[in-house]
């Protein structure tokens, strides 16, 4: 008998849990608690029990009845609540109250992305002064005066001929080579300057991204591996890369890296000047004269260096066609 009561209660509560419509609640109420309901039919069986058992079983039946009742009520309220929420008119398409979001400058975004990639390769970030001496901007970098690769018109001078605004971030390489103990791997992103009347593709200020490493055992293969890893991570795994011999006075051997032109799919267009390739960066093994200038023996320790202009990359990524708009307040956030 006691088992029957428990079974009945469990069965009722399980059925109540499954209810979706209000009408079902009423049906279940009649079926379990009604005059001819299942609980009452158990009560009727009380008389078949021994007198001493009747009291205890009666209490159990009562408890089961209350439990079923309260489950029914709870479910009923739940359904009513749900129904009423459905009926309240609510317009989710109304615009939110504007919350002003701040934006990083596109150049900062690109620098951050590049830093992240090089961070994984064990590179530290670094910086150096923008006002540079002729020595660190040119002299220590194997660019003596009257060197064919040193354009006379290029630099912005604050005091000719000794102080310039740095014309490239290679000056930071010269500083690091004289200040930091190897091994090191460093990337630098920063402002550079040149004597230039502004137009859509040239500006007196531009950004460069530079990297260099100094460590025993570094080779051209490390340089190529590092650059390919970066290029594929940053520009996409499917890009075509051309790694070729190119002359830069700061390196020997020197290498240039080109990427397939995305505008014409390498067919040749005005962007790539019909070449199908875009020149992306310059690189090479740090020139032995630079190492010697910094007090190292090129046969004992080697290094590589690479550098690229950032603005073109930023402009391509954000669809900006005029370099001036990057740094003159034209960007509307």
């Amino acid at each position: 008998m006691r088992e029957d009561i428990l079974n009945l209660k469990n069965e009722a509560i399980a059925r109540i849990m499954d209810v979706i419509l209000l009408a079902e609640i009423d049906e279940l109420k009649i079926s379990y608690l009604g005059r001819n309901g299942k609980v009452n039919s158990l009560t009727k069986e009380l008389k078949n029990l021994k007198t001493e058992e009747r009291g205890e079983v009666g209490i159990s039946i009562n408890e089961a009845k209350h439990a079923i009742e309260s489950a029914l009520n709870q479910k009923k309220n739940e359904i009513i609540n749900r129904e009423s929420l459905k009926k309240t008119w609510f317009d989710a398409s109304v615009p939110g109250i504007e919350y002003k979001i701040g934006h990083l400058h596109p150049t900062s975004i690109v620098i951050n992305d590049m830093f992240k990639i090089f961070h994984h390769l064990g590179f530290s970030m670094y910086e150096g002064p923008e006002i540079e001496t002729d020595e660190f901007n040119f002299g220590k970098l194997n660019l003596p005066k009257d060197h064919p690769a040193r354009s006379l018109q290029d630099a912005l001078y604050i005091q000719e001929p000794d102080y310039v605004l740095r014309t490239h971030t290679s000056s930071v390489e010269a500083r690091a080579l004289s200040d930091i103990k190897p091994p090191f791997r460093i990337v630098v992103a920063g402002k550079c300057y040149r004597e230039e009347k502004a137009n859509a593709s040239n500006n007196a200020m531009f950004y460069q991204f530079q990297g260099f490493a100094l460590q025993q055992g570094l080779s051209m293969a490390d340089l190529k591996g590092t650059l390919f890893y970066f290029v594929k991570k940053f520009f996409g795994e499917k890009r075509h890369i051309r790694f070729r011999c190119k002359y830069y006075p700061e390196v020997e051997p020197g290498a240039g890296l080109d990427l397939d032109c995305q505008f014409c799919k390498m067919k040749g267009c005005s962007v790539c000047k019909g070449r199908g390739w875009i020149e992306m960066l310059g690189s090479g093994m740090i020139h032995p004269i630079i190492l010697k200038n910094a007090g190292y023996n090129p046969r004992e320790i080697s290094g590589f260096a690479f550098g690229m202009g950032l603005d073109r990359i930023v402009m391509d990524r954000f669809g900006i066609s005029d370099i001036r708009s990057l740094y003159n307040g034209d960007i509307k956030y």
Binding site: L121, G122, S124, M125, Y126, E127, I180, P182, P183, F184, R185, I186, A213, Q215, Q216, G217, L218, S219, M220, A221, D222, K224, G225, T226, F228, Y229, F243, R244, C245, A255
Partner: peptide, 23 residues
Amino acid sequence: SYDEISTKTLALEIPENITPDFI
């Protein structure tokens, strides 16, 4: 041809991170 050079991804020991605080 530079195509013959293999691409090695810096198998050497990773140097200390010397990024200055101001960055």
